[in-house]
Amino acid sequence: VTLFVALYDYEARTEDDLSFHKGEKFQILNSSEGDWWEARSLTTGETGYIPSNYAAPV
């Protein structure tokens, strides 16, 4: 399992994006889409796309 942590807060701009807060942890589901990764929040259980430059490996 690849775990990442949010470096900044992010507010979803589309219904496919995932809103999150700094410090929140994610499981990365798909990182082959370039700058946007499909991720599941370990806090909320929700799935959506996150900007890859807002996350770092745990």
Rank of each mutant, 00 (worst) to 15 (best):
1 V>W: 14
1 V>F: 15
1 V>L: 13
1 V>N: 13
1 V>G: 13
2 T>Q: 13
2 T>P: 11
2 T>L: 13
2 T>E: 11
2 T>N: 12
2 T>W: 13
2 T>H: 11
2 T>Y: 12
3 L>A: 06
3 L>T: 09
3 L>K: 04
3 L>W: 11
4 F>N: 00
4 F>T: 03
4 F>H: 06
4 F>M: 10
4 F>A: 10
4 F>C: 08
4 F>E: 00
5 V>Y: 12
5 V>D: 01
5 V>G: 01
5 V>M: 08
5 V>R: 04
5 V>L: 07
6 A>K: 00
6 A>V: 04
6 A>I: 03
6 A>N: 00
6 A>L: 03
6 A>M: 06
6 A>D: 00
7 L>P: 02
7 L>K: 06
7 L>F: 03
7 L>N: 03
7 L>W: 04
7 L>M: 08
7 L>Y: 03
7 L>D: 02
8 Y>I: 06
8 Y>W: 11
8 Y>Q: 08
8 Y>A: 08
8 Y>G: 05
9 D>T: 07
9 D>F: 05
9 D>S: 08
9 D>M: 04
10 Y>R: 04
10 Y>I: 02
10 Y>E: 00
10 Y>S: 02
10 Y>A: 01
10 Y>H: 05
10 Y>F: 09
10 Y>P: 00
11 E>N: 10
11 E>F: 10
11 E>Y: 09
11 E>R: 09
11 E>H: 10
11 E>P: 04
11 E>Q: 12
11 E>S: 10
12 A>C: 06
12 A>P: 05
12 A>G: 12
12 A>E: 03
12 A>T: 03
12 A>N: 04
13 R>P: 07
13 R>E: 10
13 R>C: 13
13 R>S: 10
13 R>Y: 07
13 R>M: 12
13 R>A: 10
14 T>D: 11
14 T>M: 10
14 T>A: 11
14 T>E: 08
14 T>S: 14
14 T>V: 06
14 T>N: 14
15 E>Y: 09
15 E>F: 10
15 E>S: 13
15 E>A: 14
15 E>G: 14
16 D>V: 13
16 D>Q: 14
16 D>K: 15
16 D>Y: 15
16 D>M: 15
16 D>H: 15
17 D>W: 13
17 D>G: 15
17 D>L: 09
17 D>T: 15
17 D>S: 14
17 D>N: 10
17 D>R: 15
18 L>M: 14
18 L>H: 02
18 L>D: 00
18 L>C: 01
18 L>W: 05
18 L>T: 02
18 L>P: 01
18 L>R: 01
18 L>V: 04
18 L>Q: 01
18 L>A: 01
19 S>K: 04
19 S>T: 10
19 S>G: 07
19 S>Q: 04
19 S>W: 03
19 S>F: 03
20 F>D: 00
20 F>G: 09
20 F>T: 02
20 F>A: 01
20 F>K: 00
20 F>V: 04
20 F>C: 03
20 F>R: 00
21 H>V: 14
21 H>A: 12
21 H>E: 09
21 H>Q: 12
21 H>L: 12
21 H>N: 10
21 H>W: 08
21 H>G: 07
21 H>P: 06
22 K>M: 08
22 K>V: 10
22 K>P: 03
22 K>N: 03
22 K>H: 06
22 K>W: 04
22 K>T: 07
22 K>I: 08
22 K>C: 08
22 K>Q: 09
22 K>D: 01
23 G>H: 04
23 G>V: 00
23 G>I: 02
23 G>A: 03
23 G>L: 03
24 E>V: 04
24 E>P: 00
24 E>L: 03
24 E>T: 08
24 E>W: 07
24 E>D: 15
25 K>C: 13
25 K>V: 15
25 K>G: 05
25 K>N: 07
25 K>R: 12
25 K>A: 07
25 K>D: 01
26 F>T: 00
26 F>L: 11
26 F>Q: 00
26 F>H: 00
26 F>W: 02
26 F>P: 00
27 Q>S: 08
27 Q>W: 15
27 Q>I: 15
27 Q>N: 07
27 Q>H: 12
27 Q>D: 07
28 I>R: 04
28 I>M: 06
28 I>A: 02
28 I>H: 00
28 I>E: 00
28 I>S: 01
29 L>Y: 07
29 L>R: 05
29 L>F: 08
29 L>I: 12
30 N>P: 04
30 N>G: 10
30 N>T: 08
30 N>I: 07
30 N>C: 11
30 N>Y: 08
30 N>M: 08
31 S>T: 14
31 S>F: 15
31 S>L: 13
31 S>M: 15
31 S>A: 13
31 S>P: 12
32 S>P: 11
32 S>V: 11
32 S>M: 13
32 S>Q: 11
33 E>L: 14
33 E>Q: 14
33 E>R: 15
33 E>S: 14
33 E>V: 11
33 E>F: 12
33 E>M: 14
33 E>H: 14
33 E>N: 15
34 G>I: 10
34 G>H: 11
34 G>Q: 11
34 G>Y: 09
34 G>L: 11
34 G>D: 12
34 G>V: 11
34 G>C: 11
35 D>T: 10
35 D>L: 12
35 D>E: 12
35 D>G: 12
35 D>V: 09
35 D>P: 10
35 D>I: 10
36 W>D: 02
36 W>F: 10
36 W>P: 04
36 W>Q: 06
37 W>Q: 03
37 W>C: 03
37 W>M: 08
37 W>V: 07
37 W>D: 00
37 W>Y: 09
37 W>A: 03
37 W>I: 08
37 W>K: 02
38 E>A: 08
38 E>I: 15
38 E>Q: 13
38 E>P: 06
38 E>G: 04
38 E>H: 14
38 E>R: 13
39 A>Y: 02
39 A>F: 03
39 A>Q: 00
39 A>W: 02
40 R>V: 10
40 R>P: 01
40 R>C: 08
40 R>D: 00
40 R>F: 10
41 S>R: 13
41 S>E: 02
41 S>T: 04
41 S>L: 10
41 S>Q: 05
41 S>N: 13
41 S>D: 02
42 L>W: 07
42 L>T: 06
42 L>Y: 07
42 L>C: 14
42 L>Q: 06
42 L>M: 12
42 L>V: 09
43 T>D: 10
43 T>W: 11
44 T>L: 02
44 T>D: 02
44 T>V: 01
44 T>A: 01
44 T>H: 03
44 T>I: 01
44 T>F: 02
45 G>S: 05
45 G>W: 07
45 G>F: 08
45 G>H: 06
45 G>I: 05
45 G>P: 01
46 E>V: 11
46 E>L: 15
46 E>S: 09
46 E>W: 08
46 E>Y: 10
46 E>M: 14
46 E>G: 07
46 E>P: 01
46 E>N: 12
47 T>L: 09
47 T>D: 04
47 T>C: 10
47 T>F: 08
47 T>M: 09
47 T>S: 09
47 T>V: 14
47 T>I: 14
47 T>R: 11
48 G>C: 05
48 G>R: 02
48 G>Y: 04
48 G>I: 03
48 G>E: 00
48 G>P: 00
49 Y>Q: 08
49 Y>V: 07
50 I>C: 03
50 I>K: 01
50 I>S: 00
50 I>M: 04
50 I>E: 00
50 I>W: 00
51 P>R: 07
52 S>H: 08
52 S>N: 06
52 S>I: 11
52 S>P: 07
52 S>Q: 07
53 N>W: 15
53 N>M: 11
53 N>K: 13
54 Y>D: 01
54 Y>I: 06
54 Y>L: 10
54 Y>T: 04
54 Y>G: 07
54 Y>E: 01
54 Y>K: 04
54 Y>R: 04
55 A>T: 12
55 A>V: 15
55 A>M: 15
55 A>Y: 04
55 A>E: 01
55 A>F: 15
55 A>P: 01
55 A>C: 15
55 A>S: 06
56 A>V: 14
56 A>F: 08
56 A>W: 09
56 A>N: 06
56 A>C: 09
57 P>I: 08
57 P>K: 07
57 P>M: 08
57 P>S: 07
57 P>D: 04
57 P>F: 06
57 P>G: 05
58 V>D: 09
58 V>H: 07
58 V>G: 05
58 V>P: 05
